[in-house]
Design a protein around this nucleic acid. Structure first.
Lengths: 211, 211
DNA sequence: GCATATCTGTAGTGATCGCTATACAATTGA
DNA sequence: TCAATTGTATAGCGATCACTACAGATATGC
């Protein structure tokens, strides 16, 4: 019972996501949020709790939509190389897509923020993404496709840096063409692979992998 | 004549630089600045004008000290490859040096800032740094060391992205070892070179270069 | 000593920050 | 129809923002 909500919560959340994406957490005020969402402060607080909870929810929405290409690329491609290659190529396209703000929300929205919880939240997402790349590389090391002495940690840090650099470049006005070029150049760092992985070592321990 | 200044302007500027470096332009308030500089607001405004002028002066100080390795590397090394290699290696060391804040002030201090002049100022510095890399590459293309079809713009965007990504990685807690590894991997994208540049083309137009 | 000039510390300006008390509108169940 | 419940709008809370008016302290030139 009670009065029905006069605005759509989902579209309001997407308006908030757009603001956070464009200006970051701290530089986005409640006033600009309510203006973009078309509601008044009490409605915002009733529907989302407070600014930080709204931000967390916007980040989740971002990861489920614009940022979902990352986990998809790592999960769907047959090899780590193809996964990272697709990851970079799609990042180049998403970051320079003019239908939404440039760059990556996870990379940029928490920079220069005083709230330590927000900093930790986004840093956690970045570290998890880097770890996901490393896990995918380790998988191909175990399967024998990549050399046993491959430094998966260094390689993951490298591709994480590439992605974060591409985000910054996009925010500086870099277009799709240049970003795709950056992604292609970044793949030159990929180590030499064994074309037929399971033939290199007898009884590879990568057999049980299902991811 | 008049009362003498009770604080050292240079050390106060360096304290301000440290604050801007650590928290960015907007997240650094006049209150934290005056606390770090050991002075009161009127002294700050008398000595530096306002917050934005103090920031601009801090950026200049940064470029003359911690950030000077960039222009030095591009100017002092004999080839573009060695210049960029040194640029990345020294960036890895400076960005992870624990004696000062992590990362690069030029890269991070203007993110999520509402003042468009501050955004434009730092973006200008980044674009100029990228252009300097491109110029150094073009120089080696003209001298014949690098292939004529080298995409200097894409290559410069790539190394600019690497540097910006290394800065973000450093801010996320990445240590010197990992950053050096990222820098080394990034050099794998460098194109094939002619070992003896002037022998490849008769009367190379790179002869008159002095930089 | 004294006028003048410059710096320093206190205190406070209007504006904006995130957030909310309060009153009113709108809907449901009885 | 009417109490109960929930959303909305106005208006304002204390805190902080960048910045400064003002008065007292300290220096120089005479």
């Amino acid at each position: 019972m009670g009065r029905t909500r006069a605005f759509d919560r989902d579209t309001a959340l997407e308006r908030a996501l757009d603001e956070f994406w464009r200006h970051g957490y701290e530089a986005t005020s409640i006033a600009t949020l309510t203006a973009a969402m078309g509601i008044n402060p009490p409605s915002l607080y009733a529907a989302f709790g407070d600014k930080r909870k709204l931000f967390t929810e916007a980040v989740r929405r971002y990861q489920e939509t614009h940022g979902a290409f990352s986990t998809r690329a790592l999960a769907e491609e047959p090899t780590a190389r193809e996964a990272v290659e697709r990851l970079l190529r799609e990042a180049a396209e998403v970051y320079s897509d003019a239908t939404h703000p440039p760059g990556c929300l996870i990379v940029s929205a928490g920079v220069n923020t005083t709230d330590p919880q927000v900093i930790a939240e986004l840093r956690g997402h970045r570290e998890r993404a880097k770890q996901a790349i490393r896990d995918r590389i380790d998988h191909d090391i175990r399967s024998g496709r990549l050399p046993r002495d491959t430094d998966s940690g260094g390689l993951a840090a490298y591709y994480a840096a590439i992605i974060q650099g591409m985000s910054t470049q996009a925010c500086d006005g870099c277009g799709r063409t240049d970003l795709v070029s950056v992604a292609a150049l970044a793949m030159r760092a990929w180590p030499e692979e064994h074309p037929d992985p399971d033939a290199t070592r007898s009884g590879s321990d990568g057999l049980g992998c299902t991811a």
